[in-house]
Design a protein around this nucleic acid. Sequence first.
DNA 1: TATTGTTATACTCTATAACTATA
DNA 2: TATAGTTATAGAGTATAACAATA
Lengths: 155, 155
Amino acid sequence: MTSPPPFLPLLRELVRTYQAFERYSAAHVQSLGLTPAQFDVVATLGNTEGMNPKQLGDKTLITKGTLTGVVDRLLAKGLVQRLPDPSDGRGQIVRLTTRGQKVFEQVFPAHGAHLAQAFSKLSAAELAASQQALHSLRQALEQAGARAGTQEGAT
Amino acid sequence: MTSPPPFLPLLRELVRTYQAFERYSAAHVQSLGLTPAQFDVVATLGNTEGMNPKQLGDKTLITKGTLTGVVDRLLAKGLVQRLPDPSDGRGQIVRLTTRGQKVFEQVFPAHGAHLAQAFSKLSAAELAASQQALHSLRQALEQAGARAGTQEGAT
DNA sequence: TATTGTTATACTCTATAACTATA
DNA sequence: TATAGTTATAGAGTATAACAATA
């Protein structure tokens, strides 16, 4: 039995860092009258030409039945539109409206302005290194996830 | 207008990495029949002598009205108990039951076993670098959060 | 008067399964 | 038959405000 690798502190750090981000961004999101799920969708649609609910669900991890309701509410707020998918009669394209685009552009610069100050202490190299570190970490987690999914039953 | 700092990809990576972890651990949590909020409470109570709902809410970021219901459901599952707070007639102490303790101890080693495989590809140096990177990132975020919290009103 | 915790309200998210329409 | 998306259902989380009991 090899000694256990010290990844628990790393995970704890990951969770704390994410929570710090969540706490930070929650104020902005809430001030827009968006729920986390709705914001997730808006953020995913930002800077795209739109996508079908299937792709949207895959990216946001929202299941299709749930996504219908989330998109409905964004529709009611006038932030997204549903367009027919020209290449598939069953499909549709969900896309930000002009107003949705404005909201998208509004929240990220707002984040940016605040965060820019905070991040000004980190060099470009540090940012890159952090990003790379997170990427490795994510890959490890995704492998574990795939494995867990495959070998399921270790309940 | 200065060029935008390149921390957006870093944040996106942070979110994705966290989501990978979430997705990974969700299986274990779900297999225990616990919701994320319930697991949050159990994990917070783990390795403690219990605490009052006020503290519990502060740590889990669950508001008091919501927390009552979450604790109710954990109570129904026999995982926690409500004890009177000897030092405050209004208060109570929420504490894991023996069964709750067992669940707590059960889920964390289970995480470790799976994750150990995933992390075996990362060297100790890589783990340390990742942790350091996250720590810097978190400090930046917490500074931003503190600033946002202080200057609030930019809603 | 302030604080702890419960209750009531209303809305959103969530997964799942059954269903319609198109491929 | 398979897939895209909707609808129905039931449960849980969420914030908020009003309330009781205690400090």
